[in-house]
Design a protein around this nucleic acid. Structure first.
Lengths: 186, 186
DNA sequence: CAAAAGTCATTAGGATGCTAATCGTCAGCC
DNA sequence: GGCTGACGATTAGCATCCTAATGACTTTTG
């Protein structure tokens, strides 16, 4: 499930040429956009391979990390999280979260317990098995991140983060803003 | 199908703290990695919304763009491309490409014709309907790319591309290299 | 020339994640 | 107390993309 289906990005000259046909095309923006998606795909692929080798999908890993982060947070108010909380802090729907939790329960990585106060809710918590699993998995995972960013000096990494953050902030407002159904002329 | 399941990236201090538990964790690399994936997701989401509004999936759009690029390439040797060529230049398998072409044929966006010389092969080519569709769709698509990159000056965009390219080159070798089955200790 | 090996497209079956609809529970209001 | 509307979790059905296996065809080789 790559974000960009193109393996070889177009040369800059091709973008310049295409801009003759489409005046809306800004070659510099387009180049940056394509590189962003392509690099993100490749980086994602590299870490995901590690996860699948350990028999866990990316989505399930994300849920484990969310729970792990919460269980290691001193401000944590309660034990475990509800499926709704997990879904809200992820980029998946509640229905999808139900499915993710299903498979995690099947593999004994999390436990579902009914909330005492509100019987609509469930609480999801890591099992010791999951803790051990993460302790085995995470070192390699972090090593891969470091390996990926190896060609960049620390200051280059800071620059990258700064630039990406500008885009991220802007994209978030763009994505959240036009919930008004009609974003483009049809 | 986001790459990163985390909506809110961890604060840098949390990474520093986690590095105490996991000495393999390089906070700066980790931060850069997470920002890369997160920003890529958000940027992707923004352009994909435009595509779904026009009733086309991201994968199908990619195939159309590949065919469009080839048909506008003066060096193009022959008319159309084979499914294998399309799959090789994409990030999907040949089986997936068959499915993508199926739906594109159903929507009359491409035509399948048998290759005269090699009867194992098919040739896939855009229909006039697809050309018109792209001419209608692409301006908005390019505008979205430009809008996304708007907060960055042109020189910042160049810097971003340069940094991303370093990562991309390195990640490509990392991904292609260890085809030797044993990438990590099990 | 004919068997073996390789290539191309496709099919079958599975995993993942979505939207929409459903069921149970809670909270406000008469 | 008993409706009514809102919310939490789940289910059902769908789309996408994967791996592995299959059948048709071409090329190589004895």
């Amino acid at each position: 499930m790559p974000h960009l289906i193109l393996k070889n990005l177009p040369r800059y000259e091709c973008l310049l040429e295409a801009a003759n046909t489409f005046p809306e095309l800004d070659p510099s923006s387009c180049e940056a956009f394509l590189h962003l998606l392509r690099t993100g795909d490749e980086a994602f692929l590299y870490t995901e391979r590690n996860l699948t080798e350990h028999g866990i999908s990316h989505g399930r890993f994300g849920v484990l990390m969310l729970l792990w982060g919460q269980s290691h947070n001193p401000e944590a108010h309660r034990h475990g999280m509800t499926p709704a909380e997990l879904a809200d802090q992820s980029n998946v729907t509640r229905a999808t979260m139900t499915g993710l939790i299903d498979t995690l329960v099947r593999d004994a990585f999390v436990k579902r317990t009914a909330d005492k106060d509100d019987r609509r809710m469930m609480r999801v918590a890591l099992t010791p098995k999951a803790e051990k699993f993460l302790e085995r998995l995470l070192p390699g995972h972090f090593q891969r991140m470091a390996a990926l960013m190896n060609p960049l000096s620390q200051s280059e990494q800071k620059t990258l983060v700064k630039l990406l953050n500008k885009i991220l902030q802007h994209a978030s407002t763009l994505n959240a803003g036009p919930a008004s159904k009609s974003a483009a002329a049809r």
